[in-house]
Amino acid sequence: MYFPGPSFERSETPSIIAAAMWTFFHKLGSPPWLYTISGQILRWLLPAALLALVVGMCWGLLFTAPDFRQGNSYRIIYIHVPAAVVALGGYYIMAIAGAISLIWKMKMADIAMLAAAPVGAALTFIALVTGSIWGKPTWGTWWVWDARITSMLILLFLYLGVMALYEAYDNKVAASRACAVLALVGTVNIPIIYKSVDWWYSLHQPASIKFTGGSTIDPSMLYPLLLCIVAFYALFACALMANMRVTILDRERRTGWVRRLVEES
């Protein structure tokens, strides 16, 4: 009999971690596990997200001082910036999920990519509309073909494009592959959006919150803004999981666990 010897013992600890990681990934790929756990997460995350949203919005609308230059119209920042931040963050999630489904053919990644598209589109739409409404009293116009705004409009078309492309194919495996490629190609747009206010002369103000160096926003305005960003991220997660649950149930309808689930209810 062959024993691996000391090298086996030395690698034992990492192998335990690796095994735990693989079990986790394996579970992530398991539809019934994902369906159950997402249901449990949604039960507390959704109320928490809604509470954070209400508190953040009321804080920003009623309890902060107006901007010294823009007056009260600046209060739109508490929805405009979170929507834009999460619309961009959501694109990463969609593109990474697309890459995973393309490379490893992981079914749940494919479902996550497709679930992220409508949520990202809605948030991009919110960012564009609230920005347009904010622009009227601040810049004197609803719309300008400015670098930041145009690149955000392209982001909206990318999200809508992924949704439309999936519907356009009868063969859903080919559809997913095409969507993943489009999502990955579209990531070119993300750094352009970030840098647009620095690269081009723009009406849009530069970022107020910076991770490096000082932010150009007063703490009394920053805290409600951060709370709203957290709330929007949590809402994104909720909508993403809710969309995924529908698709999981739909695709797994012929399997035993879905039948049992339906019979039990």
């Binding site: 009260n72 929805i79 929507a83 409404i133 009293p137």
Partner: peptide, 18 residues
């Protein structure tokens, strides 16, 4: 909101609706 009310409330209304 010192004249900015319609803008601010319209923006929040549309956001909540979406």
């Amino acid at each position: 909101m010192d004249g900015h009310g319609p803008y601010v409330w319209a923006a929040y209304g549309i956001t909540l609706l979406v």
